[in-house]
Each structure stands twice: as structure tokens, then as C-alpha cells.
Amino acid sequence: MSVKDYIRERFFPHIWCAGCGHGIVLNNLLRAVGGLGMSKNEIVMVSGIGCSSRISGYVDFHTLHTLHGRALAFATGVKLSKPELNVIVPMGDGDALAIGGNHFIHAARRNIAMTAIVMNNRIYGMTGGQYSPLSGPGKLATTAPYRNIDQDFDIVKLAKAAGATFVARTTTYHIQQMADILRQAILHDGFSVVEILSQCPTYFGRRNKLGNAADMMKFFKDNTTPIGSKAKKENPELTERGIFVQNDLPEYCAEYDKIIKKAGGSC
């Protein structure tokens, strides 16, 4: 497959900074979708606002670029009215878990079939590097010049606790794993959450002296490990990646369909 078949070439080169991890997510998401052999007409991408959310402008699917934090709410509307479509919702960590946190947990709880991708660069990139709920204590940000004191979320634990039936994590370094997880997440009949650790060299990297984009990706390589690995037992500080949850539970649109039939039958 050629990724060019799935993009709006007229908008390239894209707006993201040199080395931005969001471009690597775009690259491998296209390959994941290409590998599934779906028609572009079967896919809807719904995004909010942020550097990450700009991704919807570049893909040649049905796309909606909506409001900051509300992508999942719009996506829910799309999915309920046309459950036969595959809905993909890429979000930034701020978009998904600061302003959009409430939508996130409730979409997970309902188990509505869609793929939520959290492009986690631990910062608000688009607005100039303010700290996010994923920055973590000790990190520097425009709004934390004396270092951040907020604890961060663990997206995997949060999604799991909220009821998501597919939960996974990977990074922009681990491209094959990223495409493989995205393929499985898209095929999953329920709410899927895929956290992808992504680099913002411009704000998070520069402020925290983490080097260039490649250095930030090396950090992902050196500080993550497959779920349950020997390395994790030896060094509990490592972040695990892989598929954490893959459950079958009733899907929201299917349940809703039953209600429609029930209500129609009784009148």
C-alpha cells in the first residue's frame, strides 16, 4: 500500500514541527488502516483541538475537526447515527484528559465502539507549552517555571478503571507495535484506548532539556518494556507497553438497537 492513497496531499508538508511525534502516529495509523483493507468511506476520524487534533485534516477519510476536549462527544453522535462506520478519535493528552476527561471516562464506561488514540506528549503543544495532567511532578513547563507539583494520570489505569474494553500503550519509537496495536484496536468491538507516547521537541523537549526528537525517542526505547518482561521485574521504574485489556462486553450501539426494537415493538 502507499500512504499517499490515504492522505490529502495538497496540505503537505504538514504544519507540525520538525521531529514532532504526531507525524509518526499519522504515518503508522495510515499503515494500520491500509493493512485492514477498509474503504476510506467506512472510516470517520473525529478530532478536537490541539497539534495532535490537526491529524484529521491530513487523512482522506470522512473527518470532523471539532471542539477542544469534545471529540468523543461528537464521535458518539456519529457512531450512534451510523453504527456501521469505523470511528477513530485521535486526541492530545490535554484534549483527552484535562478538558475532555469527563467525556473520556464516560465513553469508556458505555463501551461504545470507537478507537480513542491519546497522542501523549505530556504538554499543551499548540498553545505554547503549558503543563498538562500528564506532565508529571518535577517537569518544567511555561506555566510551571519552578517545576510542576501535580501528579500525573496513568492513562492505562484510568481507561481500565473507567471500563474501556481494549487498552494499550506504545510509543513513536515502537512503530511496528504501534501499527499492530492500532489494527487490533480498530477491529475491537467496543471502546478502545491506545496511548501513544509522542515527542514534542519544541516545548516539552526543549524546556526539560531532553535533547532532539531522536533523543526523545531513544528515551522511549530505553524506558519502556513489554508487559510483564523480566526487565520490568528488575526495574519497576520502566513503563510497560503492549495490550493491557482486551475484553468482550456488550457494545453500546448494539444495546441501543435492542432498545429501539423493544420500543418499536410495543407501540
Binding site: 502507499s2 492522505i7 503537505f12 520538525a18 521531529g19 514532532c20 509518526i24 504515518n27 513513536t172 525517542m217
Partner: peptide, 13 residues
């Protein structure tokens, strides 16, 4: 293909 898959700008084929 590692360069192709990791390029954030889809610049490599």
C-alpha cells in the same frame, strides 16, 4: 523500511 516508518513527515518511500 525503518526510515520510511519513522519519518514524521512521510518524506521517505
Amino acid at each position: 523500511r525503518l526510515c520510511e516508518l519513522r519519518c514524521p513527515d512521510l518524506a521517505i518511500t
